[in-house]
């Protein structure tokens, strides 16, 4: 077992060294293609597409930025609507790009949950647009069940994972 761990360790170090080599190459080589920006997300040296800005709302931190849903549903509850109404107000007066990330719990299939996560994020987007926010400011991304907030397999955990995060 110890040798096994050691093997992994050596391998990991080796890979890290390799990959460090790869990513440093990216940085110098992507300048010619504006559609690509260097990314440190994958260790294979692949690059990400641009266009996703990380700007965040400087709104009142007491207003919820995560909204929760029922199983297999994408309907905004009254708390979510109340919070989104306040965010809409801020966005109308100070327009900034936002990202709505939709998520699902681990039950059911992964690609169906991708669709469900998107449907949830779309509910939040549609509500903001209805409240007068420019739809062009909003990007919707679904993570399905791939990026859970809580890793346990129980009702409480699933409830935390069926969510939309405003970023």
């Amino acid at each position: 077992m110890k040798t096994q761990l050691l093997k992994y360790g050596v391998m990991a170090t080796f890979l890290t060294a390799l990959l460090a080599g790869c990513s440093s190459t990216d940085t110098t080589d992507t300048s010619g293609d504006s559609a690509y920006v260097p990314s440190n997300q994958v260790s294979t040296g692949t690059v990400g597409s641009g266009g996703i800005s990380g700007s965040s709302l400087d709104s009142d931190s007491s207003v919820a930025r995560t909204f929760y849903f029922e199983f297999d549903k994408a309907i905004l509850n009254p708390e979510a609507r109340a919070a989104l109404r306040i965010h809409a107000q801020t966005l109308r007066s100070t327009p900034v790009n936002i990202r709505l990330e939709g998520h699902a719990d681990e039950r059911g299939t992964r690609e169906y949950n991708m669709a469900l996560g998107e449907r949830r994020a779309n509910s939040a987007r549609d509500f903001l647009v209805q409240e007068g926010v420019n739809g062009a400011l909003i990007e919707v991304i679904s993570y399905g069940e791939e990026s859970p907030a809580s890793l346990d397999s129980n009702e409480a955990s699933w409830g935390l994972n069926r969510r939309v995060e405003l970023k």
Partner: peptide, 28 residues
């Protein structure tokens, strides 16, 4: 190897290639 999710691998019929979903660009 990625810090972002990888999903839905599927084989080519000749078993020489895979298609899959990667979030490495920030989107699937």
């Amino acid at each position: 190897d990625s810090k972002q999710p990888i999903m839905s691998p599927a084989w080519s019929p000749d078993a020489k290639e895979l298609v899959y979903v990667s979030f490495e660009t920030g989107r699937p």
